[in-house]
Amino acid sequence: MGDTSGLETIEAAAVANGRFRYFDLVMAAFVAILLLSNVLGAGKVAQIVLPGIGPWPFGAGILFFPVSYIIGDVLTEVYGYAHARRVIWVGFAATVFMAVMAWVVVALPPAPDWTNQAAYETIFGQVPRIVFASMCAFWAGEFVNSYVLARMKVLTEGRHLWMRTIGSTIAGQAVDSLIFYPLAFWGAEGWTHALVIQVLYTQWALKVGWEVLLTPLTYWVIGALKKAEGVDVFDRATNFTPFRAKV
């Protein structure tokens, strides 16, 4: 898995204006999973029974959102930081658009004979504080994840892919969680400080655990894409500023 023998090693700057065969598809998958995790998972609190512990509630979004980090790893490892940066900005813009559209649609007055407004508000209504926290956390966490992976790839000379994917996720998800939960819930009704910290660490551990469990799949996808594209991209001279969308 993850064999890169026979591939041309190339600097990221050399493919800045190049056309990859599958980059657009990976970007579409990233944005789709990001939006679906916010729509399908964010509003539901699920529960499982853990042996020896008992019932344990968790946000259903945990099932989907970490996959965006895995795809982020694939983007950075295969296409380089600059391409991943563009995708992060596209995902951020799509999330902003979704939030605005959800607010507009929920706020529209319902027809007199349409009786589902309350249910619609429950599913699609969004608390501005949580939306703001989610956007800030996603933006910062994804960039940290991509930066750490790209720098580790150069430092390890492309070896130990598992170390890069797991290490970058540990850092990225830590930043994501440290921003989101305090911004969204610190001082909120029903949320004690201890509960915020407990949920923060729990969600971080679960997200990192997902990365570890899916490492074999990540290896396979990265290896297949590198062979299909025919290059192995290194960010040795890349401008790592997040404040640009140009590749």
Rank of each mutant, 00 (worst) to 15 (best):
M1D: 07
M1W: 03
G2A: 14
D3Y: 09
G6Y: 06
G6E: 07
A14E: 14
V15M: 12
N17I: 02
N17V: 02
N17W: 05
R19Y: 03
R19V: 12
R19L: 05
Y22Q: 07
F23W: 12
L25Y: 14
A28N: 00
F30H: 12
V31L: 10
L35V: 11
L36K: 02
S37M: 02
V39L: 14
G43R: 12
A46K: 00
A46T: 01
Q47S: 09
V49F: 07
W56A: 15
P57F: 08
F58I: 08
G59N: 15
G59Y: 11
G61D: 03
G61A: 12
I62R: 02
F64H: 01
Y69C: 05
I71K: 06
G72I: 08
T76M: 10
Y79C: 03
H83N: 12
W89K: 10
A94I: 05
A94F: 06
A94L: 04
T95N: 05
V96R: 05
V100C: 13
V104K: 06
A107W: 10
P112E: 09
D113Y: 08
T115E: 13
N116W: 02
A118C: 00
T122H: 11
I123L: 15
F132W: 12
W139L: 15
E142M: 14
F143V: 08
V144H: 02
S146Q: 08
Y147V: 05
V148C: 02
M152C: 10
G158M: 01
G158E: 01
L161F: 13
M163H: 04
M163F: 15
R164N: 04
T165E: 06
S168T: 12
T169Y: 06
D176L: 07
S177L: 03
L183D: 05
A184Q: 10
G187D: 07
H193D: 15
L195I: 04
Q198E: 15
V199D: 00
L200V: 03
Q203D: 13
A205E: 01
W210M: 15
W210F: 15
W210I: 15
E211K: 00
E211I: 00
V212L: 13
L213I: 15
L213Y: 07
L214Y: 12
W220I: 01
W220A: 11
V221P: 08
I222P: 07
G223P: 09
A228G: 04
F234S: 06
R236L: 08
R236N: 12
